[in-house]
Amino acid sequence: MSGLRILVPIKRVIDYAVKPRVNRAQTAVETANVKHSMNPFDELSIEEAVRLRERKVPVSEIVAFSAGPPKSQDILRTAMAMGADRGIHVVVEDKDPQLEPLGVAKLLKKVVDEQKSNLVILGKQSIDDDAAQTGQMLAGLLNWPQATQASKVQVEGETVTVTKEVDGGVETVRAKLPMIITTDLRLNEPRYASLPNIMKAKKKPLEKKTLKDYELDAAPRLKTIKVTEPPPRKGGVKVEDVDGMISKLKELGAL
């Protein structure tokens, strides 16, 4: 075997420290002028791929892939600054119909074929849609084994051992390459993009493509009818002293 050819699909999402707001028309979440970054689970995927290489596992290439608006370039550059060798960007403008998990999985299948990848590391879900389907669907389409929610990954030759956190403990699974891994929170701690690496990343190849290049019909099957915010939490009240608290509790029927 010549080494791992790792594909890491990443997504540009609203930064998880930002509180998302629904737009006025209640059709979607407001994305204009909102801080975006790489989906945190995808950061873990990139980090894990880079760590595999650092652990002297033979890795011949790490390719970061993203489908999204032109600005997704930024996160691809970040991925390359963290250690990916090159990037592929399928431009999907905001005004175009957005991809659903199945569409992404179909697209990824074509990319896997094209790039001859033998290991795909995906975040277990993206924090904007929370679908948590893409990895599994891709495994189905490729007919590859999958290990989801990885908290530890070990590669020995053709064999991959993955520890995953499940209810009530950990589960260890093993499979032969090629395979799909989806990442969970405790897998690793992503590194910072260092300045020298950010500059190197600028020179790494970034291929720009469109959905047409992959001859993919990714028309959405679902229609979003309405997006609403969760009901606001009711504020508490302050009481002056213990007596005040007791009478308040009585008033509310808690005592």
């Binding site: 930064d15 998880y16 790489m38 910072y192 300045l195 950010i198 500059m199």
Partner: peptide
Amino acid sequence: LENVMETEIVSDGVVAQDQT
């Protein structure tokens, strides 16, 4: 950043990629 790296004013550095 490019400038201070190239002129070797700073030896190393990182840039925050997200809020955290």
